[in-house]
């Protein structure tokens, strides 16, 4: 089983901290240094964003998520020299790139996004019984369960909010919708998830 690595050493209560993200100031500094070719800064950015990136892509395209994640990082490498913005902008950029990459990938494959979990509803209850995530499998199952039964747009927005850690406004920009539309869709998604759980009780 994979061990959890807590790079920040903080209690994982929020996305920003729980996925090993450093502070905003540290990330901004890392972005500046990465633009200048600082390997340590690149490593820090990778550690901060790759876990979420992989989870997002795995939920959308499955087994080829690592390939697409690699492409995302290469695209970032090629274009970071002209990037302007803070850590929030950087995060939005990475996930916008990942989203488009995954769309391209799915289009090439002519398949629909993975929307439903490979697990049935009984698995959801099992997962919810765990007190703390301790390995990759549990995380993958939880992410999959989180979009189980949702339509494509709902799943995408939930993933961008929860796994990517984007705000409503940032998600709205990424998916080219208004903030109001995003709020409506995420509300509908949460309601649907709750209904799914209630029906299994």
């Amino acid at each position: 089983m994979a061990n959890i690595i807590t790079t920040s050493g903080k209690t994982p209560t929020r996305v920003k901290e729980s996925m090993g993200y450093e502070s905003s100031e540290e990330l901004i500094e890392a972005i500046v240094k990465a633009k200048a070719g600082d390997e340590h800064a690149v490593s820090l950015l990778y550690a901060a964003f790759n876990p979420g990136l992989l989870r997002f892509l795995k939920a959308r395209i499955g087994s080829e998520s690592e390939d697409i994640a690699s492409e995302v990082w290469l695209a970032v490498a090629r274009n970071i020299g002209t990037f302007q913005g803070d850590d929030r902008d950087f995060r939005a950029w990475i996930f916008a790139t990942a989203r488009r990459r995954s769309i391209d990938h799915l289009r090439r494959k002519a398949v629909r996004p993975r929307l439903s979990s490979v697990h049935d509803a009984n698995d959801l209850s099992d997962i919810s019984g765990f007190d703390s995530p301790s390995d990759q499998l549990e995380i993958d199952e939880a992410v999959a369960a989180l979009i189980h039964g949702l339509n494509a747009k709902e799943a995408e927005i939930v993933l961008l909010r929860v796994v990517a850690g984007l705000s409503v406004e940032e998600v709205a920009q990424v998916v080219s919708k208004s903030a109001g539309s995003v709020r409506v869709i995420q509300h509908r998604a949460i309601k649907r998830l709750a209904n799914n759980f209630r029906s299994k009780q």
Binding site: A2, N3, I4, I5, T6, T7, P12, R14, V15, S18, M19, G20, A47, N50, P51, R55, L124, I127, S128, F130, P133, D135, Q136, E138, I139, A142, V143, A145, L146, V162, V163, G165
Partner: peptide
Amino acid sequence: LMQIAQAPAT
């Protein structure tokens, strides 16, 4: 589920 999905990097 959300908390698990936001778990620290493995």
